[in-house]
């Protein structure tokens, strides 16, 4: 039964990682921009959860909604205030801007709240366990899986069936052409940021749910996960990001059990070594696109 418990745990980690990766790739696909401030959106969600929980009697579920909406708003604002102005310049300038925005948000949290970790109140359900068919697991794992899958299904629907979703995918294929069909550039980009923020907000609920605390640097972990996952799965496609997230979550869980402690210390280093190797040897990642890509130049 231990094996099943382990598997559920691994799936929970995998589905959360898939979501984390998807939030980063939505932006990357369209702007070819790696958003270093992505982790800070998760931080924003975490702090909103903390602020609402510590200062009001609002139920957790509503606090969660506030956290998600907050992350969406901040994501939208970072684009509006900073990235939009640098977008047309060089990619390097854009990447540095995202890094600067990351630093800005982190240190704003330092000033406004505190450099020390803040405890976040969680609903009862996060700490209960459940036993089905003799398999005991935490409700948090089940919730993570259910909500992540629901998010993925919802996003799939959005991307497949709504005109906005189709426009977002088209923009990732060929941004200029999308505009030539009458789709406003800013609409596409802003929507991508809002979606990315929404995903980060949902992720923050479960990420905070694991430690029940939030610090200004909490976003670095998810950011690194997103990097590894997207590179494994392939940065070009949304499906690739999800697959990469799952694969990484599973690898991560297995490594945790299998590797001796000495090597476990270097787990991160190993993961990033894999990232480098994949980028060198198979830059398109695990998920190949089904058609020949025209290479420019």
């Amino acid at each position: 039964m231990i094996v099943f418990e382990f598997i559920i745990n691994a799936i929970s980690v995998g589905s959360l990682y898939a979501l984390i990766a998807l939030g980063l790739v939505i932006i990357y696909g369209i702007l070819k921009m790696v958003n270093f401030a992505y982790g800070e959106l998760i931080m924003v969600g975490g702090y909103l959860l903390y602020l609402v929980g510590a200062n009001t009697n609002i139920p957790w579920l509503i606090a969660a909604v506030i956290a998600v909406v907050g992350a969406m708003v901040v994501s939208y604002l970072t684009e509006l205030v900073a990235f939009r102005k640098v977008r047309e310049k060089s990619l390097t300038a854009l990447l540095i801007t995202t890094f600067a925005v990351s630093t800005l948000l982190q240190n704003s949290a330092l000033i406004i709240i505190s450099p020390r970790a803040k405890a976040v109140a969680l609903p009862q359900i996060f700490s209960t366990t459940i036993t089905i068919f003799n398999i005991t697991t935490s409700m948090r794992n089940i919730l993570t899986i259910v909500v992540s899958i629901a998010m993925l299904v919802g996003l799939t629907f959005l991307f497949r069936n709504t005109i906005l979703g189709i426009a977002l995918r088209a923009a990732a294929d060929d941004f200029q052409m999308t505009r030539m069909l009458g789709v406003p550039a800013n609409l596409v980009i802003s929507s991508a940021f809002v979606l990315s923020g929404a995903i980060a907000g949902v992720v923050s609920l479960f990420w905070i749910g694991r430690t029940a605390s939030v610090t200004p640097t909490i976003g670095l972990g998810p950011l690194l996960i997103a990097f590894v996952a997207t590179v494994i799965g392939g940065m070009r496609s949304l499906v690739g990001a999800v697959v990469g997230g799952f694969v990484y979550g599973l690898i991560f869980s297995f490594i945790g059990v299998l590797l001796p402690q000495v090597l476990l210390d270097y787990r991160e280093a190993f993961m990033f070594l894999i990232v480098i190797l994949i980028l060198l040897l198979r830059p398109e990642g695990l998920v190949r696109v089904k058609y020949a890509q025209e290479r420019v130049g």
Binding site: I163, I166, A170, Q176, M177, T178, Y291
Partner: peptide, 17 residues
């Protein structure tokens, strides 16, 4: 410059954006 990862249907739908 058709969108290679979109279906024909989606390409046309976007044309009518």
């Amino acid at each position: 410059h058709i969108f290679p990862s979109l279906t024909v249907e989606e390409n046309l739908r976007l044309g009518a954006f």
